[in-house]
């Protein structure tokens, strides 16, 4: 249940940003979550609805944009999407790849009233 802790962090950051704008309500939070984070969006939105209950984010829609794992090959310079945890360059078969996406977990923006 690491979703609960993450939901709490999302709420804290969103409330902080909303307070700075003098908002009275948060209606939507747009979250970007890399596939490697292993988050279950349904669990996360459920946890969020619980932690946000008595705040100005109560009832806010938490939108989770999932980002696939992407890589860059250090040998042939190909950029690609990593499918099914296959950490090989699909073009040249090299294992010398670096992960360029899929580990992010950040709040992009929020909608306030």
């Amino acid at each position: 249940m690491h979703e609960m802790g993450i939901a709490q962090n999302i709420l804290d950051i969103a409330l902080n940003a909303a307070n700075q704008e003098g908002a009275t309500k948060i209606s939507r939070i747009n979250l970007v979550a890399g596939e490697l984070r292993g988050l279950v969006p349904m669990q996360l939105t459920f946890c969020f609805s619980i932690v946000a209950k008595d705040s100005i984010a109560s009832g806010a829609y938490l939108h989770v944009e999932e980002v696939p794992v992407s890589g860059h090959c250090n040998d042939c310079s190909a950029d690609f999407t990593v499918e099914e945890y296959n950490y090989l360059c699909p073009k040249c078969g090299s294992t010398r790849i670096q992960i360029t996406g899929g580990t992010e977990l950040r709040i992009k923006d929020i909608e306030i009233e």
């Binding site: 993450i6 962090n9 977990l105 950040r106």
Partner: peptide
């Protein structure tokens, strides 16, 4: 109103 946040969710932990 939409406001940009662009903050890492785990930054407090990090």
């Amino acid at each position: 109103m939409k406001i940009n946040v662009m903050q890492d969710v785990l930054q407090a932990n990090d």
